[in-house]
């Protein structure tokens, strides 16, 4: 799955969890940029992304991404390995 396809999959998930239909995902987007993105919604985001893409994140992986771009890279790695 290429980067554009990953963003296409991620966008509705982020919009649904963060309750913002106008949210545009960019690689630099972080939790600091979205009021609703706190520790609690972060967990919902992780679980929703896992479900939407059929993948599973390890604790070490979850601790390493700081923005959407790093999340997308991690997903590309995981889908590439699959």
């Amino acid at each position: 799955m290429d980067s554009a396809a990953i963003y296409e999959k991620l966008t509705p998930v982020f919009r649904d969890v963060l309750d913002d239909d106008a949210l545009e995902l960019t690689p630099a987007l972080t939790a600091k940029d979205v009021d609703e993105w706190d520790s609690l919604t972060h967990v919902r985001l992780i679980l929703s992304v896992e479900k939407a893409l059929g993948i599973h994140f390890a604790t070490a992986e979850l601790a390493q991404f700081e923005n959407v771009g790093q999340l997308a890279d991690m997903i590309a790695d995981k889908l590439g390995d699959a």
Partner: peptide, 30 residues
């Protein structure tokens, strides 16, 4: 209070989120 823990002893809050809260909550909810 959630906001407080993102502003107070922030490096500890991030550590707790990474290694306690997120793994435990995802494991339980799954």
């Amino acid at each position: 209070v959630r906001d407080f823990w993102t502003c107070w002893h922030m490096s500890f809050g991030i550590w707790v989120r990474h290694y306690v809260f997120t793994p435990l909550s995802t494991a339980l909810i799954r």
